[in-house]
């Protein structure tokens, strides 16, 4: 199989790595860069556990090949905090118990960070009323976070945590 060299900037660190062309961004980050915080729940883009930020936008990294991310800026869960200081989303997940097993949590948090940005950029969602600016209420948060499954059923805590982080 083919191999190719790609350049990825992950959490601010530039890596030039030789990858199997079949490697997903998720597997590249996990297996080659030893950043195992991003999780594989389905490897089919159906669960959101592998969500990362690529050039600031959320992607399911299991569906993106490493070569397609060549030259991009990638932020994983390991890069969300400001060194030892948790991001407000992370802190809210801890304080409001926005998780149980924790396996979907890295993807939830990356997704939530992107939701806050999308919201502040004025992006509507499927439940945003026409001609009205969206308020980031529970209905909006539920809709915007529905690409991230949580089998423990921690959605109530997740919605509360995203809501609190939005106020921070």
């Amino acid at each position: 199989m083919g191999r190719v060299e790609v350049t990825l900037t992950v959490n601010g660190v530039r890596h030039a790595i030789d990858v199997d062309t079949r490697m997903s961004l998720l597997d590249t980050v996990r297996e080659r860069l030893a950043l195992t915080g991003s999780k594989k729940g389905c490897d089919q883009g159906q669960c959101g556990a592998c969500t990362m930020l690529v050039d600031g936008r959320r992607v399911v990294s299991c569906l993106q090949l490493a070569i397609a991310a060549d030259g991009r800026e990638v932020t994983t869960i390991e890069g969300i905090a400001d060194r030892d200081r948790l991001h407000p989303v992370q802190q809210a997940f801890v304080d409001l118990d926005g998780y149980q097993c924790g396996y979907c949590t890295p993807g939830q948090i990356c997704s939530a960070v992107a939701v806050l940005q999308e919201y502040s950029d004025g992006w509507p969602s499927a439940v945003t009323a026409a001609d009205e600016p969206a308020a980031l209420d529970e209905v909006e948060i539920r809709e915007r976070m529905s690409g991230n499954l949580c089998r423990c059923g921690a959605y109530a805590g997740i919605v509360a945590a995203v809501g609190r982080a939005a106020e921070a």
């Binding site: 869960i77 390991e78 802190q91």
Partner: peptide
Amino acid sequence: GHDKVTGA
């Protein structure tokens, strides 16, 4: 909790 929200 800290380990779960930081990917550690």
